[in-house]
């Protein structure tokens, strides 16, 4: 008879509690997986699981509710900020966030995000910008870079035909209802660490009673971009950031403290 030795190894990193065991439907190397993990890490570390109501959007990330082990409501395409407004207005004690892609937030849902921001809704918005409609087969998004080939801009996005990439987070940062707006990326581990700090700050601001907090995250779509996962990461750090510079655009609650990161403690 054998006895299993207890694992005495000292843990440095483990899959966060609020990330379900389910294998995701995302393509290999897709940035959504990293961002889901960051959200799950923060909800776990900040003990927000029992009070969180997540608002899912439409696109590849519609199944976020299958991977984050929290209450979730699904929205029609683009309407997540309005749905989150409804949740917020009748559940003042809940932690409320939306998880939206660029097609959802910056095209079909433009009115909803702008006006939720203008109202200063106390919600956190996780805005995943990979510059493409992944779910429907890689069409041009409002955030697609000039010259970028997609299945609906086969010759590359041309400004005279399809306009310019929309820097919507900068636009939102102008609104006084937005307490925090930042843009991070997932292009490498240090960028992922900085993005996690931005998300933590966004969550802290909601908990401190601030207005909307939004973190745009430059992500990848290796399959839609026709690249390997490492190539897609390099593309973000060398090309995409030129159109969408990283950093904190506004923090209107500078006096409000940020909670401790587990890694820093």
């Amino acid at each position: 008879m054998t006895t299993l030795a207890p694992d005495t190894r000292r843990l440095i990193y483990e899959r966060p509690e609020l990330l379900t065991d389910r294998s995701s439907h995302y393509c290999p190397g897709c940035g959504h997986g990293i961002i889901h993990r960051l959200v799950a890490e923060l909800l776990t570390e900040m003990h927000l699981g029992p009070t969180t109501i997540g608002v899912a959007s439409v696109g590849c990330s519609v199944f976020a509710y299958d991977y984050l082990d929290i209450d979730f409501v699904e929205s029609p395409h683009g309407r997540a900020p309005a749905v989150a407004t409804g949740v917020r207005r009748v559940r003042p004690d809940a932690f409320v966030f939306t998880y939206q892609g660029d097609g959802d937030l910056a095209a079909i849902g433009t009115a909803e995000i702008v006006h939720a921001a203008a109202r200063g809704e106390r919600i956190s918005v996780i805005f995943v910008n990979n510059g493409i409609y992944g779910m429907t087969g890689g069409q041009m998004a409002p955030t697609t870079l000039l010259g970028q080939r997609t299945t609906s801009s086969p010759a590359g996005r041309e400004a005279n035909l399809a306009g310019y990439p929309i820097p919507i987070t900068e636009m939102l940062a102008l609104l006084p209802g937005v307490s925090y707006a930042a843009r991070g990326s997932i292009a490498d581990p240090s960028a992922i660490g900085r993005t996690k700090k931005m998300l933590r700050r966004a969550f802290d601001i909601q908990l401190a009673g601030g207005g909307m907090s939004i973190v745009e995250i430059l992500s990848t779509c290796p399959v839609g971009w026709g690249m390997t996962a490492p190539e897609a990461m390099e593309h973000v750090s060398k090309e995409v950031v030129l159109t969408y510079p990283l950093g904190v655009m506004v923090d209107r609650m500078k006096d409000s403290p940020t909670s401790k990161d587990k890694d820093e403690a």
Binding site: L11, I12, Y13, E14, R15, P16, L19, S23, S24, Y26, P28, G29, C30, G31, H32, G33, I34, R37, D188, P189, I192, G193
Partner: peptide
């Protein structure tokens, strides 16, 4: 930190 599928425990 980079793994999209959270396969690592360290």
């Amino acid at each position: 930190r980079i793994c999209p599928d959270a396969v690592f425990t360290v």
